[in-house]
């Protein structure tokens, strides 16, 4: 059990770290109702979800970066980590230049 979860945790963390290195990505995003999430013993990693045949990634785009550029960066960053699985990218929000990181957790209202 712990072997399985630690292997998954390592894989998910590697993918999350690779996605965050993309300049067009401001943050990871759990998607609507925080569905794109990996649940691990004692913690959760939002924005990355692995299944046998697909990889789902949710991100917040940095302002000014076209989605096509963002997708290309994410695909390039995770290509070697996903073993040929298709990577679905969901752009859940856009970080505006004047926006501070939110003081209140998003999604509690909407």
């Amino acid at each position: 059990m712990s072997d399985w979860s630690s292997a998954v945790a390592a894989e998910v963390e590697a993918i999350a770290a690779a996605v965050l290195t993309c300049p067009a990505v401001a943050a990871l995003h759990g998607g609507p109702l925080a569905q794109t999430v990996t649940l691990l013993p004692g913690r959760r990693i939002e924005g990355v979800q692995l299944t046998e045949d697909r990889v789902r990634i949710g991100v917040v785009a940095a302002y000014g970066a076209p989605v096509a550029l963002l997708t290309a960066q994410v695909h390039a960053a995770v290509r070697e980590l996903v073993g040929g699985r298709p990577v679905d990218v969901h752009v859940g929000d856009l970080q505006l230049p004047e926006e501070q990181p939110q003081a209140l957790p998003a999604g509690s209202g909407s």
Partner: peptide, 15 residues
């Protein structure tokens, strides 16, 4: 450009 063999890209309403 959003639908490719390497995966789908979806954009949220808020964006």
């Amino acid at each position: 450009a959003l639908q490719t063999n390497q995966g789908r890209t979806t954009v949220a309403d808020g964006v």
